[in-house]
Amino acid sequence: MKLIRLCGLALFTLLLALPATAVIETYEFSDRELELRYRELSQELRCPKCQNQNIADSNAPISQDLRRLLHQQLEAGATDAEILNFMVARYGEFVRYRPSFNGVAVLLWLAPILLLLIGVASVLLMMRGRRQQSTALDPAEQQELSALLATTEKDD
């Protein structure tokens, strides 16, 4: 009796796990290397419908389609560049989380370096400015100071 109940419980928990496996389909790859590339590319390609998700995480119909295409093209022997070009030709530069180094995207790639250079330059400029403000008094200032000291001493 106890065994039957245990079996029932086990079956029930298995059923609970079903929806989890139904969410994202799995693909068989002829080569382990293809599977690694699939994983990498599906994480780099952005879902056009649900922006801010890659096609590996998204369950939108369009992401399912793109994953299927990705699998087909990998199995057909396409290179990474060919696959990315295929996607960009249809969905624009938008589908890449790592935009290519051309056009307006160059600005995007270079902006951090540019900002760093501006920062370093301004720090250097500020330091040079500070060094020039030396604390030593020139003869005229020294004379003025002595005069002031002399007057205060007289007041005492």
Partner: peptide, 8 residues
């Protein structure tokens, strides 16, 4: 749809 860049 994919050739056209349709996403919905």
């Amino acid at each position: 749809g994919v050739d056209l860049g349709v996403y919905g």
